[in-house]
Simulated scan of single mutants.
Amino acid sequence: MSPGTTKSQQWQWENAVAGSAAGFATVAVMHPLDVVRTRFQVNDGRVSHLPSYRNTAHAVFTIARSEGLRGLYAGFLPGVLGSTISWGLYFFFYDKAKQRYALNREEKLSPGLHLVSAAEAGGLVCLCTNPVWLVKTRLQLQTPLHQTRPYSGLYDAVRTIMKEEGFSALYRGIVPGLFLVSHGAIQFTAYEELRNVLVDLKNKRSKIHHQNPDKLLNSVDYAVLGATSKIAAILITYPFQVIRARLQQRPSGGVQRYTDSWHVLRETARFEGVRGFYKGITANLLKNAPASSITFIVYENVLKLLKLTRKND
């Protein structure tokens, strides 16, 4: 640790590094399912340039056959960039908020304060990363059936969007994105509370009470905690993801298919019913349950490594 760095600052940056590593590992493994989920989400049965898929397996096979590996990894660069930045900032802001709320408190933070900390972190991350997610969505939706000139990559997409639609277009979907802050809030609150319960159970069974949680929990525990908390968050907040994806589609002939969140909500309910708000959820669960396990395994273990390195300095 450098002389001018406090323990609090060092801890915050350790959380950011661990979160970024976790985000990168997650995207690299699970990106093809993210492409499938996005295409299911926006396919309302009335969009001509999107192929129809029977199920997740059929979608993966069809994309691989017609578009190759490039199709399965469409939007990979903004996906990696967005996820790495998001997780890094999220863990950084989340831990900073917890430290602030824990000031002058000897007891553990309440579930309510965990929720507020997670929501605060999610809102800040959403404002920073919405343009990246918009570009990722549009790259994932490009298919051989598109009549519009395709974006050649991340830079070309940003430049073209700003030229054709203006800077504000990069923030399409920001409203449901902000509502999706509840996703992270629910996930992290569930994770923290389940983690505390598991630590208490293991402490009771251990001969040495009040051990450091780092010594009590292992990668299997982190995997189960990560997957369980993620599933709970997905089931509650998934409709917001569908609304955001539909808003972020590229205009057809210069005309936006949906004008705002309320328009998406009204049209989806009218033509597709409740089922329309859960399109692609199978691919989402297949992607995010194990992905969340990977994220928290990497995060917790990288954090342990950084703590150990700091102690040895």
Results as ranks from 00 to 15, higher is better:
Tyr155Thr: 13
Leu225Tyr: 02
Gly166Gln: 10
Gln211Asp: 09
Leu198Arg: 15
Val158Asp: 03
Leu217Ala: 01
Ser229Ala: 06
Leu141Trp: 03
Ser229Thr: 02
Val181Pro: 10
Ser152Gln: 14
Val132Tyr: 02
Pro150Cys: 01
Lys163Thr: 04
Ala157Gln: 11
Ile208Gly: 10
Leu225Ala: 00
Leu235Ser: 09
Ala185Thr: 14
Gly153Asn: 12
Val132Glu: 01
Val199His: 14
His146Asp: 03
Leu180Gly: 14
Thr160Pro: 10
Ile174Lys: 04
Gln211Ser: 12
Lys202Ala: 09
Leu217Ile: 02
Leu235Met: 11
Ser219His: 14
Thr137Lys: 04
Asp221Met: 05
His210Ala: 15
His183Thr: 10
Ala190Gln: 01
Glu165Leu: 12
Asn203Asp: 15
Arg159Asp: 15
Asp221Pro: 01
Ser168His: 11
Val197Ile: 15
Leu154Trp: 07
Leu201Cys: 11
Asp156Tyr: 10
Met162Cys: 09
Leu170Ala: 04
Lys163Tyr: 07
Arg205Met: 07
Asn203Gly: 15
Asn218Ser: 12
Gln187Asp: 04
Ser168Val: 13
Thr160Gly: 10
Ile231Ser: 09
Pro213Val: 04
Gly166Asp: 08
Gln140Glu: 07
Leu145Ala: 05
Asn196Gly: 13
Asn212Tyr: 13
Val132His: 04
Tyr191Thr: 10
Leu178Ala: 05
Ala233Leu: 03
Ala233Thr: 00
Leu170Ser: 05
Lys202Glu: 10
Tyr191Asn: 14
Asp156Glu: 11
Leu134Glu: 02
Glu164Lys: 07
Phe188Thr: 01
Asn203Trp: 15
Val181Thr: 15
Lys230Gln: 08
Gly166Arg: 11
Phe188Ile: 05
Lys204Pro: 09
Arg172Lys: 07
Gly226Tyr: 02
Val220His: 11
Gly226Thr: 00
Val197Lys: 15
Ser168Lys: 15
Gly173Gln: 12
His146Arg: 04
Gly153Val: 06
Ser229Ile: 03
Val224Ile: 13
Asn196Pro: 09
Lys163His: 09
Ile234Gln: 08
Gly184Thr: 05
Pro213Lys: 07
Arg149Asp: 06
Gly173Pro: 11
His209Ser: 13
Ser206Lys: 09
Lys202Ile: 06
Asp221His: 05
Ile174Pro: 02
Gly166Trp: 10
Thr137Pro: 03
Leu225Lys: 03
Tyr222Gly: 00
Val199Leu: 15
Gly153Thr: 08
Trp133Cys: 04
Pro150Phe: 01
Glu165Tyr: 06
Thr148Glu: 01
Leu235Asp: 08
Leu134Val: 00
Ala185Gln: 12
Phe179Asp: 11
Gln187Trp: 05
Leu216Tyr: 04
Ala169Phe: 12
Gln147Pro: 10
Tyr151Met: 00
Leu198Phe: 12
Ala185Glu: 13
Ala169Pro: 06
Pro131Asp: 00
Leu235Glu: 03
Ala190Pro: 00
His209Trp: 12
Ile231Lys: 05
Ile234Thr: 11
Arg195His: 11
Leu194Tyr: 09
Thr137Ala: 07
Phe188Glu: 00
His209Gln: 14
Ile236Glu: 13
Val132Gln: 01
Tyr155Met: 14
Glu193Ser: 14
Leu217Lys: 02
Lys136Ala: 08
Val224Cys: 08
Tyr222Asp: 02
Val135Phe: 05
Asp221Tyr: 01
Gly177Arg: 11
Ala169Gln: 11
Met162Leu: 03
Gly177Ser: 15
Arg205His: 12
Leu235Cys: 06
